[in-house]
Design a protein around this nucleic acid. Structure first.
Lengths: 248, 248
DNA sequence: GCAGCCTACTGGTCCGACCAGTGCACTAGC
DNA sequence: GCTAGTGCACTGGTCGGACCAGTAGGCTGC
């Protein structure tokens, strides 16, 4: 005690410094979506590093979904508007590497979508209500299974939007596409598909009615129930109790 | 019609092919955490690409949190066990670029943590119950504010773990750290900190009692209430109704 | 048998080069 | 005068080679 406390020196790679600076410029708004970065050859002068270093930095920024570069483009890399693509990628990786079960994913959807319904029941605008009704109508009119699923998705999307919470909206979207990617083939091959579709439409109409009536808790409960009925068949028996724990 | 239908050729960069192959090997389990990739010079032979290309691919894999490389390490890049670091990074970026408000983040926490409490009330083991009790005890004994927050976090962490859902556990962790990062300085400067800490301990005791009693809905409601009381002061007036919509 | 050095190899960075693709300015034709 | 076509300057993608600092494990000398 008493002497100066030395901290371990963290060696920072050159490309990381480049990433940091560009990232900061984008996140702070100094660079807006649609704007262009200088060319790689310009950047190597500005940062006084080699082109390899610049390129490695750009690869990282690209992997994070912040920029995109096309060969031959004379304007340099383009700053992208935000998309949940990076979030989607890392969550998909998570699902595989952390060995997330279908039950866990469905359970997560039950939590998120029911919360979205709860909030939507209080906060939805009349226009969003009309959009939900239109989506259900298109579900009823859908002839093939793909179109039906697409309209199903669009219904849930409107509800998530109506919740007023962008994070809920994005996460429902990401998790939903992961779940659908896992079992889309099983869904398409489901026996008695007509009955399933009829039941799904009925569930959606009930949720819509609850949202229209402003009954959030009911809308949330119906959403959980609908999701359980829709996915339970694909979840192993032993993991279904965990899903039912959300139904009470 | 009638002629062969040609599809647009998607040009795939060489480094992307390398990323795909390594990623597949890791996610399929052919490469386990702790194992090493061949050296960059070996990889450039195996993939028959240049070292620059190999390095760009490794940068992407590193950005995704799948591997790590240290200069001078004679064993090559290391395959990492899964960490939510990449998810954390992309969600932090999301929070800044998509301009997520504190209210949205807190609302999301209310949704996730209350669901964790709900599930924990049914699925917790006795050991986890004891851990929760110990965390609350350490909160009561904490002398400085940092330690108090740390124990608070560990309580919520046990609850999330007890929910049995890894996705809930990871997301609560990620969102919590983002929220705390946003307002940690405000929390530390809060006036009447003693009263706040006492109230927080009381809230946690109530949640713990509900979890112990197996009353999921009560535990969930108490969790939402506790979180609202803790964070509402830092949320702008106009956005508080959206939070209260979850309290009913 | 052990402590300490040595070396072979690693990743990080730089340089220079070539290629295919792109957009723009310029030009030839109307 | 205006448009359609062409060439060019520059882009990003990839390659090869080079040098450096750092590491680990084998080797040497004690």
């Amino acid at each position: 005690m008493g002497g100066p406390r030395f901290e371990p020196v963290r060696t920072v790679r050159a490309y990381e410094r480049v990433v940091e600076q560009v990232e900061e410029a984008i996140e702070s708004g100094a660079l807006s979506p649609g704007e262009r970065l200088p060319s790689e050859r310009d950047l190597m002068v500005q940062f006084s590093v080699s082109r390899s270093t610049v390129r490695e930095a750009l690869r990282v920024l690209q992997a994070r979904g912040l920029v995109r570069s096309r060969p031959g483009d004379p304007h340099g890399a383009e700053v992208l508007p935000f998309t949940p693509a990076a979030l989607h990628k890392s969550m998909t990786t998570l699902a595989r590497v952390a060995e997330l079960s279908l039950a866990e994913l469905v359970q997560f959807r039950m939590v998120l979508d029911s919360s979205a319904s709860l909030l939507a029941a209080r906060l939805r605008t009349d226009g969003q209500l009309a959009e939900m009704g239109a989506a259900v109508a298109r579900m009823r009119a859908a002839t093939d299974h793909d179109a039906f699923v697409a309209e199903d998705v669009s219904f849930h999307d409107v509800v998530a939007r109506a919740s007023g919470n962008k994070l809920i909206q994005i996460c429902t979207d990401v998790v939903r596409s992961i779940v659908l990617g896992l079992i889309s083939e099983k869904l398409a091959a489901a026996h008695d598909r007509q009955a399933l579709m009829r039941q799904t439409i009925k569930h959606h109409e009930e949720v819509l009615a609850a949202v229209r009536a402003g009954d959030g808790p009911l809308a949330a409960r119906l959403t959980r129930k609908a999701m359980y009925d829709y996915y339970a068949d694909y979840v192993p028996d032993g993991e279904r109790p965990a899903l039912r724990a959300l139904l009470e």
